[in-house]
Amino acid sequence: MDAPVIETFEKVEDIEIRLLLEALYLRYHYDFRNYATGSIKRRLRQAREQLGFATISAMQERSLHDETMLPRLLGYLTVQVSEMFRDPGYFRAIREIVVPHLKTYPSLKIWIAGCSGGEELYSLVILFREEGLEDRTIFYATDINQEALQIAEAGVYDLDRIQLFTENHRKSGGKSSLSDYYSAGYGRVSFDRTLRDRVVFSDHSLVTDAVFGEMNLISCRNVMIYFDKALQDRAVGLFRDSLARKGFLGIGAKESLRFSAHADDFREFVRQEKIYQRIGK
């Protein structure tokens, strides 16, 4: 489309949303200002309805004066949807195509950026254990949402999700039984504490924080789809600068670096599974 679709005056709701996001940034330093607007709008409308506010402005007023609003709003603004070994083909590709390269390194750093409730993290730790790489690896699991980080650190999930996780694990080429890694009880499963031995959990924002050094693999799946294009460019630039020479970047199945300002700094390593390799440097 040639001309951007912008109306001559802004709709009231659009103004309210901008003001609320500005308020969250100024008051709490949470920066959603460059998130993709379509999805932010949907979730703020949901928050407004479900939290019982007449307007988004009213929600903004409360957010400034009542700190307990922040975690509640974060619950809406950050989307927590994941599953272990989601898109098994991705994990199979890591196992069969990326791991042989990683095996040539004496020590490894892996970054799970936007780790949410930890599903992707535990998938990778289990995969690395199965491949005999866990002992030489440090996993960095980061998210902006403290509650999500706590869930990730606890490693406890509802029992009814385990069947799907197990099926995914099997399809990903798992060499052990997923049940080796958890104990079940009271409708929940608790993942083995030793899976956390090599993990560093940390609060990190792809929007405002800086480079995270010398990673061999960064996995950041379905996180950047919530960003607008400028912010995606920032995040991909951050990943590029955080990767070691010939390091790998894995993104979501329907994400692409094709549209990124930094596309030339990567090559498609496993095209079908959206695994890229840093070139140059």
């Binding site: 489309m1 679709v5 993709a36 607007t37 379509g38 999805s39 607008d228 294009k229 329907k254 549209f259």
Partner: peptide, 9 residues
């Protein structure tokens, strides 16, 4: 999306 692109979530 409002920047002449399509988004997924």
């Amino acid at each position: 999306e409002d920047q002449g692109t399509l988004g997924l979530t």
